[in-house]
Amino acid sequence: MMMGNSLERNQTSMAYRSLSIFLLLAVLLTPLGLTARSFAYQDEAAPAAGEAPAAGEAPAAGGEAPAAGGGEAPAGGGAEPAAPAGNGAAPAAASESFLSWMIRASGFFGFILLLLSFLMVALIMANVLSIRRDNLMPPDLIGAFEEKLNNKDYQGAFELAKSDDSFVARVLAAGLSKLNQGYSEAIEGMQEVGEDENMAMEHKLSYLALIGAIAPMIGLMGTVYGMILSFQTIASSATSPKPSELADGISTALFTTLEGLTVAIPAMIFYSLLRNRVARFSLEVGMISESLMNRFSSSSK
């Protein structure tokens, strides 16, 4: 059973190490995504800048044709269909849904924050399911252990605690294993195991705190990057840019900030709640184990 517990702990440790490596890669790959998106933005902005004069020259050329044609210009209906064509392009650009706009504006930052949100939900569910009173302090185990102590079946009580994988069972097994050295040594051994188990649970919770700290930083990086795009548009434009030309950078800044906070706030809330639960259950385990082992204090004196 001890080998099974050790194997389970090694697997859990490997899983959390993989999570740490993923978070580190997410932070390191963010600047690469920034560079790639910056080049893509410049490539998209170049044709748009070239098309603007062409669109402006087309009406000028069309305006000269009616002047040369004299009175026949109104008869030619070519100028009137041009206006509906221009009006028809505006609704096509405005028909983009909010979700697709948010995905396009978020870009690489949104992808990283989406992955962090999946990890956050997985960590929350795993910790909520594991940090429960029935898992840490099974009532059936405590009742059976107390019954064996009342019957003075100390070896059976030790085997019962040794065969269980719960928090309180590990603490009781540590106390009974050192009982031959004295009651004070048994209590000290129980406290050491309790602190070790408490540290292991808080170590799992620390990844939620890490996500809560990283997510706003990634959102802030997206905010800075979006503002850089907007100022780049202003600097590269010969005239005052239109608000629609600045909308891409501003939307990137706002969406990434919103997404970063959306991931960070639940992570920090659940981290605080689960950490308080760990502290309360650790205290209860200490009180239960000491009350069960208290009967050996008089016999050891």
Rank of each mutant, 00 (worst) to 15 (best):
S282D: 09
S289E: 00
R170F: 05
G249D: 07
F111Q: 09
S20L: 08
L283S: 12
H203K: 12
S299Y: 05
S237W: 08
V263R: 01
G70Y: 09
A253K: 13
Q232S: 14
F231R: 04
G189W: 07
D134V: 04
G110D: 02
V121H: 02
E192Y: 08
Y183W: 13
N5K: 14
E185C: 01
L149Q: 00
A68Q: 15
R9W: 11
N150G: 05
L160H: 05
G63H: 14
P139R: 01
F118N: 00
L220Q: 05
M2L: 09
S237H: 08
N127T: 01
M221K: 02
N276T: 06
A36Q: 14
L28R: 09
V263P: 02
P266V: 03
R9E: 12
S300E: 12
R104E: 10
V285D: 05
S163H: 05
L34P: 07
L172C: 08
F255S: 14
G50D: 15
A61H: 15
M199E: 13
I211P: 00
F167W: 13
T256A: 05
E96A: 09
S100K: 11
P243D: 11
L254M: 15
M190C: 04
E284I: 04
Q155T: 00
S299F: 05
R132N: 04
A161C: 04
G78V: 13
A79N: 13
A26Q: 04
K162G: 06
S177L: 09
W101R: 11
P138L: 06
S6Y: 03
N294D: 15
T223N: 06
S6C: 00
L19I: 10
T239E: 15
V224M: 10
P139C: 00
V27Y: 06
A169L: 04
D196E: 12
P59R: 11
F296V: 03
M125L: 12
W101T: 14
I124R: 06
G175Q: 05
A82R: 13
L273Y: 02
M3F: 10
L25K: 03
H203L: 08
D164S: 11
E202N: 14
L172V: 02
N276H: 06
N151P: 00
A122M: 09
S291W: 00
D43W: 12
G78W: 15
A26G: 07
L29P: 11
A267E: 02
E185G: 03
S236P: 08
N198V: 06
R277N: 15
E8Y: 10
S297W: 00
A105T: 11
Q155K: 01
M227Q: 06
M1I: 15
A200F: 14
V224E: 10
G50K: 15
D153L: 01
